[in-house]
Every structure is written in C-alpha cells, then in structure tokens.
Design a protein around this nucleic acid. Sequence first.
RNA 1: GUGAGUGUAGCUCAGUGGUUAGAGCGCCGGACUGUGGCUCCGGAAGUCGGGGGUUCGAAUCCCCUCACUCACCCCA
Length: 432
Amino acid sequence: MPMIPAVRGTRDILPGEIERWQFVEDVARRLFERYGYAEVRTPIIEREELFAKGTGDTTDIVQKEMYTFTDKGGERITLRPEATPSLVRAFVEHSLEQQMAVPKLYCLGPMFRYERPQKGRYRQFHQLDVEVFGVHDAWIDAEIIDLAWSLVSELGIQGSELLLNSVGCPVCRPAFTAALVAALGEDVKRLCGDCQRRAATNPLRIFDCKVPADQAIIDRLPHTIDYLCAACTAHFDQVKRHLELYGISYRISHRLVRGLDYYTRTTFEILIGSLGAQNALLGGGRYNGLVKALGGPDRTGIGFAAGIERLVLALPEDASIAIARPDVFVAAIGDAARLEAVRLVKQLRSAGFKAQLDDEGRSIRSQMKTADRLKAPLAAILGDNELTKNEVTMRDMASGEQTSIGRADVGEYVRLAMPRVKPPLEAAPRGQ
RNA sequence: GUGAGUGUAGCUCAGUGGUUAGAGCGCCGGACUGUGGCUCCGGAAGUCGGGGGUUCGAAUCCCCUCACUCACCCCA
C-alpha cells in the first residue's frame, strides 16, 4: 500500500518539536492573562462573507488565498485565513461589551491560506491573536505594542525590531491618496504591473512593493504621517510618548501600510532577520471602522497576530525547554517480578510520578538501555531476589549507585530523590 | 500563479552507463546467562519519489509527472 502523505503546506508537529510549541503557547497564555486578556475560542469555519467584508474584498487573502467550499446545505463556508473578523463577530454576536468589564480578548489556533509554502509559511499555520475593543485612547495602542514586544522578549528571541507607522483615518486618507497619486504623476507608467493596478484600486499599497526598479520612485513619494489630520497626529504622538514611557524603541517606517483593508491610524510589525524572506514575527494595528462594518456598534478595535511557526523558528537554540521523560523506569526480571512491576508502576503513577515499564518483557540489559534512552533519572529493579525480601533495588542512573529499600517505601524514596535529580532549569511546558 | 534547486535505508548522505546499491548515525541481538553509557561482533531494514523512453545494460542519460525546499507575489 502506498502511503498517503500530508496535504501540501500542512505538517505534523512531532515530539521533539512540540515541546517548543507548548513553551511558546504557555509563555503567551501566561503573559496575556497577566495583562488581563481572556481566551476566546471561535470556530475554524465561518461564512465566506465574514472575511469578504471583514478582511476586505481587495486583499490578496480574499481574492486568491481562501479555502472556501459550499456545504451540503448550500452555505458558502470558509476556513478562517485570520482570526480578527471572527473575534469581531463573536464580540458583536454575544454583545461582549455588555458581558465583560473590559473586552480584552486573545485566541490561538490554526489559520488557512492557499499559498505556495516556503520557510515560515504554510497553508495551515497557527497564530496567537490579541484584540481590544472600544478603547479610543492611544495608551491602549502602546499597551498592545508593549504586550507584543514582551511576548517576543519573554520567549528569549533576539535581534527583532519594532516598526511603527500611522496610516490615518477616513478623514485624512483621501487627501493623502490624492497627494500620492499626484506625486506619482507620469511615473505611474514606469511602475510594475502590480503597482499600476494598486494605483487605481488601493494606492497606499504601492508602499508594499519590493520590485527593485520601483524603489527609486517610491522613495520620492509623500509619507502618510505628513498628511495626518489633527486628531490622528495627536493620537500618533501619544502612542510614541507612551512607548517611550515603556522604554520600547521603534523605527518609524513610512512603508508600513499593511495588506489588510481595515487598518486606521496605528500600524506596527515586529521583524526578525533570521527567518529568511518571511521576516514578520507579528503584525497588527488599529481598525476603527471594522466592528461597525460587521454589523456591530461603532466601536474601535486594535490588536495583533503573531505567527506561532515563526516564533518557534526564532526561538534561541539553547532555550531551556524541558523534554518529556519519566521520573522512574521500572525494570523487571522474570514473570513473577513483572507482575509486581505492573503494580509498582501503577502505584507510582497514581502518586503523581511519571513511571514507565518495558512494554515487551525483554532482557534486563535491554530494559536498562531503554531506561537510559528515556533519560529516566531513576530505575527501580525488581527480580526474584527483591521479591523474596519484599524489596526494590533503586538505581541512580547518573551515578550508578544502588540501594535496596523496602517495597512499601518506594513512593517516599522517589519523592525524596526527585528534587536532587531534576535539572535546575525546567521550563515546564504544561499539564504537570 | 511564476522561477530555481533537491528527491537513494528511520535520519544525514556517498554512489554520474557495467555483478546481489553503500557508509555513518539510529534500531534489534550478542560478547556481558540480574544492570544503561564505552568497545567489539552480528542482524533487520531500500519498488534508488512515480511513469514512460534510450541502451545489451539505467540510481546514473532524455521526457513527463508528483513531492519537498528556497525565492517571487503577499503575509503571520
């Protein structure tokens, strides 16, 4: 039988790597909750129109990257390409501003985009998503950015950079796009095909262009922050002042306009050089019109999405991440001892220890070898000698020292041995 | 959707027209019959990504195809 491989752009995360994921997720959860954010889980499938309206018809995500199908009831269903519209929907659908004192939400899980896979990019990928609704004040922009920056630094990721910009609002943007088109003038014909299209549909996104020949022209274009209205200018100044309060350094990037339609005012990204072409660890911004556009009250929103794959890739090699290993390996010699070993393993597990037994009743040599490979710090050895004396031989696998102890004292012995055999640094993924 | 590179054992790879396709690591067993790590010995394991073609003969050359990787586009 030929094997059936995983779908393109999807992958299995196996033991050995999963610990790094659990570490990232655990650090993120604890950090978000320290900041007062509550977890929400939304469905992975949504109506197509949620993203058509929420993410935006003109975006690449909606135009060519969505997994959409018609279900048996004739409904157009989409596998979510991002989480923000779902969280906005949940916020609106459940009137969360009435339910929650402060609508600060986070969620994590898989997203789907039909793209060609490459380093740090998959068709099923995973994001950590954080959103706050209904706060106008610029201090929340800074808090969200501080949260994002803290996530990266608490994971021990080195060499990242914060990019910041403001893309204005419906008041000032028309004047800016007019100025942009005017400044382009005849040069528009010298830009690449994509940019010529953008000039007509969404001129802001010309700043996304990376075609070398276009760069000289783009560098001469006006900047959004020079065309902000008074309110947007004041807001942006506040954001910068608060960031200085937090001691977070940033670089203003005039070209950070971002691909999604809904952004207003603040946009930001955290980049890292070590990931190759897909260098954005996370990105986000403010979206003041989105909640209303999705049928809710006129409330502001701000948030960011971080790519878990990319965070995991950016994790330092020497991150102290505990690998799963038993506390005790129980080795048995002979059938009678094996029966007793089963009892002992069950007893240790019930007492909260990670205990394992050889699954196939092989030679003692093989069992000790397995204990070694599992990196068990302790081995409990049971044979006829031990059975007749009602004892267990405890072996310290690091030193090779062995002691005979009474059968009834094994639990206590393991409990006392644990602190001294456990490694000093244990990041303790989850579910201890 | 476009371009380039790579597909040989579980993993990393050697083998570029000539016997039954190899190595290292890993795995299983033994030397060591109740004890892991070191050493030595033995063993299992491959439709050489798939299909077609050239040839007396193909892992090797040609064509097609699939997958993976990286990059473009765009994004997390």
